[in-house]
Simulated assay, not measured.
Amino acid sequence: MPFQSPALLIGVSARIYYPSGPVLDLGGVWTKTLHFLEQSVAQWLMRGGALPVMVPAVDAQSVVQTEELNLGHYAQALDGLVLQGGNDVAPASYGEVPIAPEWAGDPVRDAYEKSLIEAFVKAGKPVFGICRGLQMLNVAFGGTMWQDIGTQMPQALPHVRSEMYERNVHALEIVPGTHMAALYPGLQHGMINSIHHQSIKDLAPDFVVEAHCPDDGVIEAIRRRGPGFVAGVQWHPEFRQKNCQVIFDDTPLLRDFLASARAQQSN
């Protein structure tokens, strides 16, 4: 879809790269914390005619301090928010202790994204979560997570295969009567990519499940009840290849999110 006028500006939460040693002493980006927007997410939004804008994060080590970054200004200036994928949600963010050191997650990003969610919801702007983004929405509104599907849900399918990455796929079942079902009339099943080792354990209050994996019950899509637009999917719609008939067509999801953003723009 071509660029739409007036411009539809969609904020995207920053992914965070932390330098890990040992690294070559080359200086530059290799030794700095980086905030970045994944190209595929940006292009996914651009295909819908929107302009993606990455919203920066700050932490205790930043030159700009938290009190100097008013995320409410971003929520007022932008038309919607996408939470992109990335590092694990920290168990500490939902009141648990990591069951393994490698699953400690990213509490800095959690706090930043929770503040972003609060700002955009308060401003009445739509929020859409992708993979970790779905998980962060669940946690931000009071839900919890399985820290590792393989360990805590041994009966489940392998929802991540590092050697396959986005080529790892499994079945999806849409829950009848939901908003997602209305977006896909006559369609209840599909195939989605799967690149996650955490999943929703306790669903946040006031949320409904819109889709799940029929083989093991893992929640794959959620939406908040009531007014406004707060929803997320566990898969990566931005990784779907153009004209691919095998993987679930996420175009209706993107159009629905951007239509909500456009509606808020005109208010």
Score class of each variant (00 low, 15 high):
1 M>L: 08
2 P>A: 15
4 Q>H: 05
5 S>Q: 12
6 P>T: 10
9 L>H: 13
10 I>N: 11
12 V>F: 10
16 I>P: 00
17 Y>Q: 14
22 P>S: 05
40 S>A: 14
40 S>E: 11
43 Q>L: 10
49 G>Q: 08
50 A>P: 12
52 P>G: 07
62 S>Q: 08
62 S>T: 13
75 A>G: 07
76 Q>C: 07
78 L>T: 09
84 Q>G: 04
88 D>M: 13
89 V>I: 15
91 P>A: 13
113 E>V: 00
114 K>T: 07
117 I>F: 09
120 F>L: 09
124 G>Y: 12
124 G>W: 11
131 C>W: 10
135 Q>W: 08
136 M>Y: 08
144 T>C: 09
151 T>P: 01
165 Y>M: 04
172 L>R: 00
174 I>P: 02
182 A>K: 15
183 L>W: 06
188 Q>T: 15
199 S>P: 00
201 K>T: 04
203 L>M: 07
203 L>C: 05
206 D>V: 05
206 D>M: 11
208 V>A: 08
210 E>D: 11
211 A>T: 00
215 D>W: 00
221 A>N: 10
223 R>W: 06
228 G>C: 09
228 G>K: 02
239 F>H: 10
248 F>Y: 02
249 D>W: 01
250 D>H: 04
250 D>A: 15
251 T>F: 03
253 L>D: 05
255 R>V: 10
255 R>C: 03
259 A>Y: 02
260 S>G: 15
260 S>C: 09
262 R>I: 14
267 N>F: 06
